[in-house]
């Protein structure tokens, strides 16, 4: 009986390991191909260990497009976006859970509805608004048009609802203002949820493509997703440029892989707790 169970588990492990390898294969293939020579690619593109490491592919990619600028742009815009999104989302979630005011239910319904709203519906007017504000082709335009995160509001609202009301009341009778209660009591008590929201929002913003591609078109103002696609398009799908394209792509993907490997257990937990129910 024990023996059977062990064999069964081994079979399952093998199947899942194969699936897992399949999942990370594109990343591995990208990394391997990024240091291959063109001839290596043609002779055997399946080969996992290159005959020689051609690090100059990376230098060539960096010479062809300002990847470091792209990465820096993505990093700072995403950081500001995530911080402000969480700041605002915490305030709204606190008002929704701790205040009684006219239109609270209506406001919540609007926020919930916005969660289902395909963002494409807003692109054309938002584009015009940014144009009027003179913020087209500007990273600040990208930042301010991304400050509302309905998903974070809903996630935090759910967490804030679980704060015992006596704790809030104790703080009130301790003389704390609502502002202090939010930042000194409620937010520290829910730091895990905030971390979850931050990670999800970070990945979303950093990887976002369509909206930034619509509003950013100057090379120095591009974020990594936009810059990378332009780089890849400019080199075309000629087989001989393949290793350089892979090197460029690797520059865009590696930061996320590194973040993922370091924060892996937080990521898994973040996403699992993120199923928002209305």
């Amino acid at each position: 009986m024990k023996h059977m169970e062990r064999i069964q588990r081994l079979v399952i492990f093998t199947i899942l390991l194969l699936c897992g390898v399949l999942m990370v294969y594109p990343m591995i293939w990208m990394l391997v191909s990024s240091v291959k020579s063109t001839s290596d690619v043609f002779s055997d593109s399946l080969r996992l260990i290159p005959t020689a490491f051609h690090w100059e592919n990376f230098a060539n990619a960096l010479a062809a497009a300002p990847f470091l600028t792209y990465l820096w742009n993505s990093t700072w815009t995403t950081t500001i976006i995530v911080v402000l999104q969480l700041l605002f989302a915490s305030m709204v979630a606190y008002a929704l859970t701790q205040f009684e005011f006219f239109g609270r239910r209506g406001l919540f319904a609007i926020i919930l509805g916005t969660y289902m709203l395909p963002s494409a519906t807003t692109y054309i007017p938002s584009y015009v608004i940014l144009g009027k504000l003179n913020l087209l082709n500007s990273l600040w335009g990208l930042v301010i048009s991304n400050l509302a995160n309905v998903f974070s509001i809903l996630l935090l609202r759910q967490a804030f609802l679980k704060v015992p009301k006596e704790v809030i009341e104790a703080a009130r009778s301790d003389g704390a203002s609502e502002w202090s209660i939010l930042w000194r009591i409620v937010v520290p008590m829910n730091r895990n949820t905030l971390l979850n929201a931050a990670l999800i929002s970070f990945v979303g913003s950093f990887n976002d493509y369509l909206w930034p591609s619509l509003i950013l078109n100057d090379k120095h103002n591009m974020v990594i997703s936009v810059g990378l696609n332009q780089f890849s398009n400019s080199l075309g799908s000629f087989e001989k440029s393949f290793p350089i394209v892979m090197a460029g792509t690797a520059l865009a993907v590696i930061p996320l892989i590194v973040v993922y490997v370091i924060l892996q257990r937080y990521f898994v937990h973040s996403v699992q707790t993120a199923s928002v129910k209305g």
Binding site: M23, M27, M30, M246, V253, L256
Partner: peptide, 28 residues
């Protein structure tokens, strides 16, 4: 195993779609 299965979600779609376009390449 879970971390292997979940890894694609974190990667940028643009970058990985570029990789996939080469995986689908009929030559190499």
């Amino acid at each position: 195993i879970q971390s292997l299965l979940f890894a694609p979600w974190v990667t940028p779609m643009i970058g990985m779609a570029i990789v996939w376009s080469w995986i689908f390449n009929s030559q190499i």
